[in-house]
Design a protein around this nucleic acid. Structure first.
Lengths: 343, 343
DNA sequence: ATCGCGGCTGCAATCGATTACATCAGAGCT
DNA sequence: AGCTCTGATGTAATCGATTGCAGCCGCGAT
């Protein structure tokens, strides 16, 4: 005797739908995933049965059979970083519309756990926001993979990025045009590709414009901006403008200036990099290089989807995504009150 | 004839390991997931074989057989919101250490797609950061579920939250103690639980302290803070302090004040709510109610894990997570220069 | 009448693990 | 020797879908 509550309480499976509709499971499967293959009337009966039973597909079973996961993994070095939120949202939007789930994980894991993430069959493709992972592991995954923002030449995967050096030059050019002659660049972490390219761009710009450029160490954080502000304040003569390698760093710099009783941009002009959500509301509103994060996320996700659908490999490297300088209130002409020492 | 490249190129499965070690697949499975059940020597042979073949488990197969996904789903109304990053990170940390994957999705989806998310067998538990979903759908999932920050009485699930009303009173009490008598509360969205409780707390506090409280509409965004600032500036007499229902709203309010040539806290004191990462670096540093986001995320994830392991249900409702007011530079005594109109 | 063909449908194998149950060897005891 | 018991291992069913292959039916052409 079959207990009636079994039928109602258990999660219905395809066999239940088939029984209700009076067809085989094969037909149900086809009606759902490839409707053109079944007859009009049958399809209608199946759809009714699906409705009646409340059937939902079991992804684990389908994934096993089809050897794919309909899921994409995002790896980032720090999930709480404000910078990444917009990118996650863009990726999830594209992926969700294509029926893919989005899994996230911190990328700074013990290497065996990290390696497993790309090998456990739960993921068809990977979005990597971290350029500092072991290339052995990354290339070992053998999955379609794109790098976003950051990149690493040793990874065998395309990167969707902006041209960081050119963007840094925009910032320096802007300061030069305002009349600044001595500027500071607060760098990012020494071994970070972004930091290296931004510094190179800043140096090239300074050289081309005949500016005197001083480098101060930093690591993209607000704390490093504060430290840099104190070091800058102690310099004689003081440079009149600062280009920070990240917005957060610029915020820290400006906050510390305020704490020291110095005003931006009256005493010093500050340019950031990234154009995070707060940049426009900061006081003063921050002049910064806009990084099109949503766009980058979208492009990355679309390229992965194309690779998954078409089965063809991802192209080798993408054109840089266009960027631009957003001029706001944190930059102005250098203070005229200060003596202009010839030497 | 078996082609040799098959063995080497294909993803090795448990049968390959078994063949290499000279045991059955059952033994390999036990050696990996329940080592106590197999003999010392056998286990060592199996481990070697795993190493040699480069075997990684296929999660889809295991998930199917065990009828669970080892995965947890986070649903939030807006993935790009800065507020959520820290929560995601905390959840992922706890879940990752327990071997669970973390899936994220926007919660504002077409209802059938939303319903499917909790029914497709890819998820064993859900973290919900959105209190505005259809209770029918949410309760239909029949999965362990916790609500974080926001909640909805119609969901049959515990919520990890702070006591929003009490927290709002802290803010109002602080302003009263500084000497403010007329204050504004910029509300959150009208139908949002958080907004409702914060307003109730603010009203209760104002009443208890004999303050005059004016409500202005808002929706937690910076834009609504700006709008509120203009409406506040047009009031006569102008209230001397503002309690905004979110930090973002407060930032918008302050930025607009600056644009209008009014200073914080000299002309108006401003209190926020949440204590997001930037609050301490804003100019002026924002006085705000601290919401322990990492803590909330951690507790939520731990409760889900406990429910999954123990199989027992989640408790009905949790104690509120302690909160506190962080006093910074955006609040001060009311301006003494303004006339004190009796009427 | 026969054949071929196209359109639907069903049967049963398959994906890769886990696990209930059976088996077996050896130890310990009478 | 005979029996039981325990621990290690193997056999085969199972999870729930997809899909290659084959069968069936009806129709038009030969």
């Amino acid at each position: 005797m079959t207990r009636p509550e079994d039928r109602s309480r258990r999660r219905p499976k395809i066999a239940d739908v088939a029984a209700t509709a009076g067809v085989s499971t094969a037909t149900v499967s086809r009606a759902l995933s490839n409707p053109g293959l079944v007859g009009e009337a049958t399809r209608a009966r199946v759809m009714d049965a699906v409705e009646v039973t409340g059937y939902r597909i079991n992804s684990a079973a389908r994934d096993l059979r089809q050897r794919r996961a309909r899921s994409l993994l995002i790896l980032a070095p720090n999930l709480s970083n404000t910078f990444f939120g917009t990118i996650f949202a863009a990726i999830q939007k594209v992926a969700g519309e294509a029926g893919l789930a989005v899994q996230i994980s911190d990328s700074r894991l013990e290497s065996s756990r990290l390696a497993t993430l790309g090998h456990d069959g739960r993921t068809d493709a990977i979005v990597l926001l971290d350029g500092a992972l072991d290339p052995e592991i990354v290339n070992g995954w053998r999955l379609p993979l794109v790098q976003l923002c950051e990149w690493n030449e040793d990874y065998d995967a395309p990167a969707i990025t902006i041209d960081n050096a050119a963007a840094a030059r925009l910032a320096v050019d802007h300061l030069a045009q305002l009349g600044h002659r001595r500027i500071v660049h607060v760098e990012g972490p020494p071994d970070n590709v972004l930091a290296i390219h931004r510094r190179a761009g800043a140096q090239a710009g300074a050289t081309a414009r005949g500016l005197e450029l001083t480098l101060l160490p930093g690591d993209f954080t607000m704390e490093s901006g504060e430290t840099a502000a104190r070091r800058w304040a102690a310099m004689t003569p003081r440079p009149t403008a600062v280009f920070c390698a990240s917005d957060e760093c610029a915020f820290g710099f400006i906050a510390e200036c305020a704490a020291m009783g110095l005003a931006v941009p009256a005493d010093v002009s500050v340019v950031g990099f990234d154009d995070v959500d707060f940049a426009g509301r900061f006081l003063p509103a921050l002049t910064t290089v806009h990084q099109p994060r949503a766009e980058i996320g979208r492009i990355g996700a679309e390229r992965l989807l194309a690779a998954l659908e078409g089965g063809r490999p991802l192209g080798p490297r993408a054109e840089p995504v266009p960027t631009r300088l957003v001029v706001r209130a944190s930059t102005a002409a250098p203070p005229t009150t200060s003596p202009r020492p010839k030497q």
